[in-house]
Design a protein around this nucleic acid. Structure first.
Lengths: 341, 341
DNA sequence: TTGTAAGCGTTATCAG
DNA sequence: CTGATAACGCTTACAA
């Protein structure tokens, strides 16, 4: 069995209180006791039991993460940021995946609460009102990443999705495009899809362009679905000169469909992505995208949780919003439409 | 503050022992007490404190995962399997990323040990002897995924990498290829790169082909590095008719280099990948690959840990090896070489 | 400077 | 069937 503080005390010939003192370095201990205790610790290979310690201290250095799926570079990049920041602070990371199932979200939040996590970061595409309610009731710092939070009193971190969409649409328009398709996901009033849509719409409107309903496709962040949708568009003869996809994988699906039908990107149609997952640069043609500082977003979320825990245990739930800077990165997937050249 | 079992007891007018009994449903409790306790639990919104429970029970339902990086579909797919299996068993998942830093591996193993995890699954590319030693000393079930374990008394799960490499090389040879390049990672005696190499070599040898040293490139699982290496090959005029890359991302890097130099895949050179991450099918041309049952590998690892915990707490460290079936999946990235057509 | 002892929130063993 | 009570391993007043 693992040695306990008591074994160390016996071996060093002191009380467990003294051992505890040297472990925590808080109170003053005579040099003599200290050396004996340290010797005993080393000899026994003693390591304090974290669960006992957490119990008495009523705190915990683990934070819980709720994420739709792993093996998805978008969340993966964010998670890397979370993980790095946690490791730097000696926090541990619990990860739960929902597979998009909103029911699981609620369950995992409870799990984390039961485990007395120091904080929770939620990445979700669809949030049920009940989940919102239970998050609000939670006595644990909770942060949303890449999501709005109407009705939800908890801090969020994201980019300015309206501006980002606006900028990249303008970029396309600046290139001379007028027939621009939008590949997006289904509406969820609190996800950023709506901001992106507004940005898209605004840019168009400012150039007296209007949205062609047939050209807005619900690719649902899925390359296959996007592939099929783009194929349909082609078969219906409704080929745009440019496509704005609100995720990189959708952009790839669109490109693939185009290739398979004999079109060239960007010569025949320009395509832009959104997020800039690592693969966006490795895809051919390399994707012109809006870059989100994914890793930094994760780090920021952790920073906020650690801060909130420092604040004397007082968990304050306010609507703090952290907006990180995005960036338009030009690569190979865009050019002016043929009739302009 | 969160209600404790004592609050429930007071409210229900019974002792904490009784409350504990109804919570755990073990012993028999009078119907009258039970209903009162349940009412109190509901009214107070009581949830048993897991850390206290774990302390007294001396067990834990969390398992620790050590992984080089998130945001990498290969590990992501395995992790999804792990996570699913854990959720199904009401286990929680700790995730630590090493970024390939072997020093961190050791540290995280200690963390998990301190936390009294029910088990640890290790995914590593490079294992230091010291880490091996500390794993062996560990009193916690530990499983290696996708890795050999000479000198390491712990179960592993993987595919038969020798056979897989042998089969796909044979496939290429069967198509008529003789000049086959190999893109692989640096040698680590205990990683599966060496088995794959042997499989490759054997297939070649059986057809009286020998390995051209210039055509084995160390792409290090990195698309960019592979891109550069392939570009060099082209510039040196040493273009093979086929490439076997031991990971899909290396295969993509190779394809990209080929495209950028004006070559066509598969018409000019065939390329095969290994692993079959989700993206392999979405890349263009869709990659012909060896499919590893990544998700299933993760599930299997969890199953083993759960089993080992059931075995009366007796952690047995043996070299059990689970070999899962692989599969050769033909897609679009291969054809016979030009001179055969 | 040190030790004793009272918790932290549970479970489990006893008597009753 | 139920209630005290002793753990679990640790921290931390309070005394000494």
């Amino acid at each position: 069995m693992k040695p306990t503080i008591k074994d160390v005390a016996d071996r060093a010939g002191v009380s467990i209180a003294t051992v505890s003192r040297v472990i925590n370095g808080a109170a003053v201990v005579s040099e003599k006791s200290a050396t004996r205790v340290n010797a005993a610790i080393k000899e026994l290979g003693f390591k304090p039991n974290q669960v006992a310690r957490n119990l008495v201290l009523q705190k915990n250095t683990s934070i819980g993460i709720i994420v739709p799926a792993l093996g998805n570079q978008f969340y993966g990049d964010i998670l890397n940021g979370i993980e790095d920041a946690c490791a730097a602070q000696d926090y541990e990371v619990f990860v739960c995946t929902t597979g998009g199932d909103p029911q699981k979200e609620g369950r995992f939040i409870e799990t984390f609460s039961d485990k007395n996590c120091a904080g929770i970061v939620v990445m979700s595409r669809k949030l049920r009102p009940e989940t919102v309610k239970s998050i609000n009731a939670l006595n644990i710092p909770t942060i949303m990443v890449n999501r709005k939070t109407s009705g939800l009193m908890c801090p969020t971190v994201s980019i300015d999705n309206f501006r980002a969409a606006y900028e990249i649409t303008n970029y396309l328009i600046g290139l001379g495009h007028k027939k621009i398709a939008l590949f997006r996901n289904s509406l969820d009033i609190d996800a950023f899809g709506v901001e992106q849509y507004s940005g898209f719409e605004r840019a168009l409107a400012e150039h007296n362009l209007i949205i062609d309903r047939d050209l807005v496709c619900y690719g649902e962040f899925d390359p296959v679905k996007s592939y099929n949708l783009m194929t349909e568009l082609i078969e219906k003869g409704k080929v745009p000169t440019a496509v704005f996809a609100t995720s990189d994988v959708m952009a790839m699906g669109v490109c693939n469909a185009l290739f398979d039908k004999g079109y060239k990107v960007p010569e025949d149609v320009s395509v832009v992505g959104f997020n800039d997952i690592q693969l966006a640069a490795h895809y051919r043609p390399a994707l012109t995208v809006i870059h989100q500082p994914l890793k930094q977003m994760g780090e920021e979320a952790v920073r906020m949780i650690v801060d909130m825990n420092r604040e004397d245990g007082r968990v304050q739930k306010d609507g703090r919003t952290v907006i990180l800077p995005h960036e338009l990165i030009e690569r190979q997937s865009c050019c002016s439409p043929a009739d302009e050249k």
